[in-house]
């Protein structure tokens, strides 16, 4: 995998939520949960940003 390595900083409370996401998703590690979030939610955020920009124009 070429791609990129990104290091997110989270405090212990945010990590607790991420661990909750791991449990809900049934994934073995936090990085996998982050990638799932990006794949699932990233396109939605892009659409929202585009819509907001379109609305403002």
């Amino acid at each position: 995998m070429s791609g990129t390595k990104v290091s997110i900083q989270m405090n212990q409370q945010q990590v607790e939520l991420l661990d909750d996401a791991c449990a809900r998703l049934g994934v073995p590690d936090r990085a996998q949960a982050v990638r799932t979030a990006l794949r699932e939610h990233g396109p939605e955020l892009l659409q929202q940003a585009a819509a907001a920009k379109g609305g403002a124009a």
Partner: peptide
């Protein structure tokens, strides 16, 4: 004390491109 943890994430090419698009919006 509030404690900060680094969470390293390896992204593949498709995920990297998506992240770059998101960053380019300046919204997130």
């Amino acid at each position: 004390p509030i404690q900060i943890t680094d969470i390293p994430v390896d992204l593949d090419d498709e995920e990297t491109a998506l992240l770059e698009d998101l960053r380019a919006t300046g919204e997130f």
